[in-house]
Design a protein around this nucleic acid. Structure first.
Length: 676
DNA sequence: ATCCCTCGAGTTCA
DNA sequence: CTCGAGGGAT
């Protein structure tokens, strides 16, 4: 970036940051996510480092927070309330230690590792053991008097346990549990607050984006009875000790605890950088199990004298560092939007992203689902976007940052023709998706065979996309029935097969020559026939022959099959192309295991939903057990659900089950139920 | 016509 | 996991 560009960029960033700071700190109504905001600040900090002569004293990077609201009395802090510098990797932590060593703070024997709750820093003042005043951090020097609101927090004692005399200042973090956050947000929503039309969790008005915003909003209530109705929590992290009475941070914490002031119970003293890393990694993994949000861990020199000796640079003390977790959201650029053709011909636009690390893994693609989604997001090629991960796994574009546009972004338009076979694409008026109508489209055929071999269908081990591509490209396989007539001689000379792997491939296919009817039906890839419908069909008709000969009326009579699905099945079996494939299967010696029909076991009539990770078996296996005893497994929770089986780290289904009062089973209870 | 429930389909990376 | 849409009840 040249100087002119940098100056423009810096000015733009400053204006934006000031604007968002005002919305966030002063109005408590952020327009963009915290992570998006952070990335703006980081970019500005980096640029200012590169061009230091362009950093005036009024740059937003020179301030800690916003101006206090007029309504609250101002409180001067006993000493500056600083914020820590951030580390994002073990390398950063090592750099921190190296710098300390340069300052002659060497051979640090111990570090105190604490969890960093995502909340608000406050200062509490006690006189002769009685809580007299509490304040927000404000700009670090002067905060707001929120004593009345802090008094409503149960974990802040109004009186310290042991008699103490004189003034005592305690600092800590006020935060909200995830449960409370959801409860209050729901309440607010019912009262008429609004989430954005895009339905994402970015707050507008009085519905809050995350627990921290809500905690902030609650502390700034002028009516403290409102604060009282929201159960805030408090953990102390510092005790101001002007006389140096305490030797270590741990001593301070223990003293605080004997006074009745809680500190985070999971804090720990460690000796080495490896242990610091372990501590951080452990909590990054386990943070989902805590009932409050964590944005990292805080590492401090345990010895207070050494801590002081490390000094303060700018607004950050050097004796400690905030070791952050990999953010769950990150900013990146949409380099291109390409179109994929799925098994059913549906066209799916996929954003190709500049690779970026999110939650510890690198993400380079994210689905855009369909054109409606593109419109909703307003995303163009070249845009800067925030990317997160739906359900902590699947990359998902959360929002576009249109303010960062340069004018060179291009609109995306779905092609008029299939990108693979050039057939003009179609779109039903009432449906969202567009699709390639050509059933012979190579993309569709490939996907159909992938699907046939996939885990829940025939489950042909080791025959994945790559092998299938090779077989198709060599002209050995046109449809999935051809797989069963392959011989070792056919494939061992192909480039992509070694001798061993060709034998393995043939063996893997042969092993699946006996296949349960339901799996086979599912594998055929009939429109609207997924796993569940395939099972229902198998149970109802028992044999493939009967299904293939069924009339549309006979199919409609099956539970869960209506006119659309019946027509789809009927047409599939009456197409000569498919009838030919079925004949090839027969000739190749495929044996279909007939279905015996419905089991009336002890779980008959019960519907289960499974969430989280189970210890003793996979979810798939648990599902099989339930079905073998006559129960049903469903994918979503509703009031029709009899039980939800919850393993560790359950997803959103758990919350929904609680809301609907569905009986929740843990793994032990479930196993007992199976055996009784 | 309109609701609620459930299923199907698509999706990423290690 | 999430969305859209089919099926069935009302």
């Amino acid at each position: 970036m040249n100087k002119i560009q940098a100056i423009k960029r810096i000015e733009k960033l400053r204006a934006l940051i000031s604007h968002y700071q005002y919305l966030y700190h002063t109005l408590d109504a952020p327009e963009i996510s915290d992570a998006a905001f952070d990335t703006l600040v980081h970019e500005l900090v980096d640029l200012e480092k590169e061009f230091p002569y362009m950093t005036p004293a009024d740059s937003p990077t020179q301030r800690v927070g916003g101006q206090p609201l007029k309504e609250f009395k101002k409180v001067e802090h006993v000493s500056r309330m600083n914020s820590l510098n951030d580390a994002f990797s073990q390398e950063d932590v090592q750099k921190w230690l190296d710098r300390l060593a340069n300052l002659d703070v060497k051979n640090i024997p111990e570090f105190y590792c604490d969890l960093k709750m995502d909340g608000l820093a406050v200062e509490l003042k006690y006189v002769d053991g009685v809580f007299v005043q509490g304040s927000t951090r404000g700009d670090g020097l002067i905060g707001e008097d929120i004593t009345q609101n802090l008094k409503t927090i149960k974990s802040i004692p109004l009186k310290l346990n042991s008699p103490t005399s004189g003034e005592i200042y305690i600092r800590g973090e006020v935060f909200l549990t995830k449960k409370e956050f959801e409860r209050i947000n729901k309440e607010q929503e019912e009262k008429g607050g609004k989430t954005r039309p895009n339905g994402r969790n970015h707050s507008v008005g009085r519905v809050y984006a995350n627990p921290r915003n809500l905690a902030a909003g609650s502390l700034r209530q002028l009516d403290s009875s409102i604060t009282a109705s929201r159960k805030l929590n408090f953990y102390a992290y510092d005790l101001i000790d002007a006389d140096n009475k305490f030797q270590t941070k741990k001593d301070k914490y223990e003293t605080l605890n004997t006074w009745g002031v809680a500190t985070n119970p999971d804090g720990k003293v460690v000796q080495t950088i490896e242990e610091i890393q372990k501590f951080r990694d452990r909590w990054e993994k386990e943070r989902g199990q805590l009932d409050y949000e964590l944005d990292g861990v805080v590492i401090s020199i345990n010895d207070n004298r050494l801590y002081e000796q490390a000094g303060v640079v700018g607004k950050a003390p050097r004796g400690g560092i905030a070791y952050k977790f990999a953010p769950k959201e990150a900013q990146t650029i949409v380099e291109d939007i390409q179109v994929q053709v799925g098994r059913t011909g549906v066209l799916t636009p996929v954003a190709h992203l500049k690779p970026v690390s999110i939650g510890g893994t690198t993400v380079s693609r994210a689905t855009l689902h369909n054109t409606d989604e593109i419109e909703r997001l307003g995303v163009k090629i070249g845009d800067t976007v925030m990317v997160g991960r739906a359900g902590d796994v699947i990359p998902d574009i959360l929002q576009v940052l249109p303010v960062l546009r340069t004018g060179k972004e291009k609109d995306f338009h779905l092609p008029k023709k299939c990108p693979v076979c050039n057939t003009p694409i179609k779109k039903e008026a009432k449906q969202v998706a567009s699709y390639c109508p050509n059933t012979d489209c190579p993309a569709r055929q490939r996907e159909t065979i992938y699907h046939f071999c996939s885990r829940n269908a025939l489950n042909i081990d080791g025959v994945g996309p790559k092998i299938i591509d090779a077989l198709m490209d060599a002209g050995l396989v046109q449809d999935y029935a051809d797989l069963f007539t392959l011989k070792i001689e056919d494939i061992q000379n192909l480039d992509r097969f070694a001798e061993v792997s060709s034998a393995n491939t043939i063996k893997a296919i042969a092993e699946r020559k006996n296949v349960p009817l339901a799996r086979f039906i599912y594998g055929l890839g009939i429109m609207h026939v997924g796993e569940e419908t395939a099972r229902v069909l198998a149970q109802h008709f028992h044999t493939l022959k009967k299904i293939s000969e069924a009339s549309e009326e006979a199919l409609t009579a099956v539970e869960d099959v209506g006119p659309v699905v019946a027509q789809s099945i009927f047409e599939w079996f009456n197409r000569p192309y498919h009838q030919n494939i079925l004949k090839k299967f027969e000739k190749a010696g495929l044996k279909i295991i007939e279905d015996k029909g419905i089991v009336r076991g002890k779980l008959f009539g019960k519907t289960f939903v499974i969430t989280g990770t189970l210890d003793s078996m996979s979810r798939e296996e648990a599902g099989q057990k339930i079905r073998s005893l006559g129960g049903k497994v469903s994918s979503s929770v509703s009031k029709e659900t009899s039980y939800i089986l919850s393993g560790s780290d359950p997803g959103s289904k758990y919350d929904k089950a609680e809301k609907l009062n569905v009986k929740i089973l843990d793994e032990q209870e479930f196993l007992k139920m199976l055996h009784f």
